[in-house]
Design a binder for these strands. Sequence first.
DNA 1: GTTAGTGGAGAACGCTCGTTCTCCACGACG
DNA 2: CGTCGTGGAGAACGAGCGTTCTCCACTAAC
Lengths: 193, 193
Amino acid sequence: MDREAARDHVLDAAEELFYGRGIQAVGMDEIRSLSGVSLKRLYQLFATKDRLVEAYLERRDLSWRRRLAEHVESCDDPEGRIIAVFDWLELWFGEPGFRGCAWINSYGELGATSATVAAQARRHKQAFGRYLETLTDGAHLPRDLAGHLLLLAEGAMVTAGILRDPGTAAQARAAAGLLLESARRTRPPAPAG
Amino acid sequence: MDREAARDHVLDAAEELFYGRGIQAVGMDEIRSLSGVSLKRLYQLFATKDRLVEAYLERRDLSWRRRLAEHVESCDDPEGRIIAVFDWLELWFGEPGFRGCAWINSYGELGATSATVAAQARRHKQAFGRYLETLTDGAHLPRDLAGHLLLLAEGAMVTAGILRDPGTAAQARAAAGLLLESARRTRPPAPAG
DNA sequence: GTTAGTGGAGAACGCTCGTTCTCCACGACG
DNA sequence: CGTCGTGGAGAACGAGCGTTCTCCACTAAC
């Protein structure tokens, strides 16, 4: 197994275990068992557990935002794209093993003791917020709306994780629709032609 | 120091440390140091650390909901009470040492490994949700609104904790105002008299 | 065939921490 | 005055875990 493949296996195992059970609850031995990569090699790839955690959050950030963007961009209507964010949340919440947002959970676990984890959570949420702004910009709607949608989406992630209520995403989408409608009223679309 | 006073001191220390730094990051020795209660006595009051965590979350649940209710009930207007929830969030977010919601953080840390903590987080959020329903009921507004407000409030707690943006509560209040307005439009207040 | 190098398996080390134990000071009672 | 019980301080124990080390099998070059 070459270096890249080993790295991927380790990160796959880390993501499954850290996300599913929490970071502190998972030992390096378990990462080894699940990844099939020896402890020696593991420490050659990631010098410390902290580094592995960092790489896990980093890789998940890229894939999470890519998956969201791919779903949203399958919709052509600018306002429809905004709603599509919440459709995607619903898909995500329904995935087996869903356990809330990895960054919210990591922040709760390590935000107070690890500046790195706190910064990664902050960056991830800022990136998500900026993405929502590109969507409201694209629909010629005020950026305030993006901020409101961010709060709704974050609340939905938390609530879906803790309450395990499958209706949470639909609730969030409904609220997003109402906010979008309010925003449209204050700034109607530019006249066609 | 009698049993009750010792118990209070221990819970005060536990709340300060667990909330401020995370549960797993704080050892029983530190609880002893800060509370001034000997380890022996501490274990007489709480047989295990798990029990202490349980008692911490339990007591904080009661005080958090009481503080919220006291602020909300200082307002007489039924719709004003709904907005007052978000005013109180702003006060809370501004308190020194604010670090997000204790239950969201605990759930992120221990939700996957402790059924007790997961259940306490769930109960706390359900109680908050029911409280919001009493407020929408009181204003003769649909319960859907309460669900939407819950998501906004949860999102605000998470975002304020992670992003440390002091404008978060105001954003949430503005969004709540828009949702309230939408809801009022669909179900106008009963005619006076 | 011998040897040097690589990598795997897992034992070992050192630290942290939850929990228990030891020892001692002190006050109450005979 | 002696002794017994209570409670405090903190040492000690045992488990878990991050990290390192040891040992060995295997391969390739000469």
